[in-house]
Write a protein that binds this DNA or RNA. Structure first.
Lengths: 212, 212
DNA sequence: ACCTGAACACCGTTCAAGT
DNA sequence: ACCTGAACACCGTTCAAGT
């Protein structure tokens, strides 16, 4: 048995039954060995999970921007990042629980740097724009994924809706009462953010306003 | 012993030693009772945690906006939400692990609705703006908090920096190499988002561009 | 209505012992 | 160099039995 076989089996276990199913004992059973052999190969559970996360992040493809304007290309990078993350549903939770969330930034970072440069940003301002998009994209996916495994939605917000109908906006009340369309919300949020980032009054300006 | 005493002791345990320290057995020891008594009062660990989360969310104060323009008032609401969350560091992880992330939206929602109305947004568009800010704020805090408990930062991104110096932006390379200032990044991100949300070409317009 | 101890089926990890 | 079983110190939960 090799260290790689251990990682392979661990990855398969997570893929099939979720991260909760990855116990040292179950893994040993899967491999047909004694629990303690695994310790010889990977040290302990901590470093096993670390290695697993590392491996999955490396699996993630590079993200290729598409679109005509820098702004739309940045949005496409964010979408790509979201897709890569959602395609590996267990990765998100594992990475997050292990305090490695920023690890998830890497696949998009290169592309984002290139695009903010193309948009005319440089230096610290460019770095902040890159980080803003990264935080926004990864944070959004964290929240979004969380809702999926959320239990029964509890109400208890009737006062809010009452207030809203009092403010004469029943359409808003209805919209907030039902769950958001995550894809749409994501894209529009990133668009708005990028819009804001590229058109701030205090510095460089993007190559024109956004059509639509 | 009452159910409330159990919750109180559980909350104290989490506050002192973190969520990991909250085991049924330790809680029993803290209370000076048998483990099994706790089960009579709270059912099981799941519902104990549910009750704990509920209680902490209710503790969170309402958020009062400040600032002159709707945009700056929305930013202040986001900052307030961030503050409330960071003030309860264990809450974030507990809520997130329990799939209740949207629960953290509530304290800010009322204020946000009011402000997007003041900014001239209505109906579905207003709802989307509220949600965009909520996702952004909570997502950002999730990522931010995660970095705090992150282990040693691994490098492995030298290629990126090489590329950057090749793109003739050493300042950007330096900025991305060191950790972000979370407060600054948060505020600027929210500002940019709100800017983008309130000045989109396809609808209502905010009361003017952002100074600084 | 409330509390108890014993028991069950799990964990991760260590360690001395094997080949 | 690699694997093993026994043992330790933990978990959450159930259940019959007490008052």
């Amino acid at each position: 048995m090799t260290r790689d076989e251990v990682l392979e089996a661990a990855a398969a276990l997570v893929k099939r039954h979720g991260p909760g199913a990855l116990t040292m004992r179950r893994l040993a059973a899967e491999l047909g060995t004694a629990v303690t052999s695994i310790y010889w190969h990977v040290g302990n559970r901590e470093s096993l999970l670390d290695a697993l996360v590392e491996r999955t992040v490396e699996e993630m493809g590079a993200i290729r921007p598409s679109g005509r304007t820098p702004a739309s290309r940045i949005v496409s990078v964010a979408r790509g990042l979201r897709r890569e993350l959602l395609d590996r549903p267990h990765l998100i939770a594992m990475v997050h629980e292990r305090g490695l969330t920023e690890r998830m930034f890497l696949p998009a970072q290169r592309a984002l740097v290139h695009e903010v440069h193309a948009a005319g940003l440089r230096g610290a301002r460019a770095a902040e724009a890159v980080r803003a998009v990264q935080f926004q994209a990864v944070g959004h996916v964290l929240v979004e994924r969380n809702r999926e495994r959320a239990p029964v939605q509890r109400p208890g917000e009737e006062e809010l809706w009452d207030e809203l109908t009092a403010e004469h906006d029943p359409a808003l009340a209805r919209a907030l009462a039902r769950p958001a369309d995550p894809e749409r919300l994501f894209v529009n949020s990133v668009k708005a953010l990028v819009d804001g980032l590229l058109t701030r009054a205090d510095g460089a300006v993007s190559d024109g306003p956004y059509p639509q």
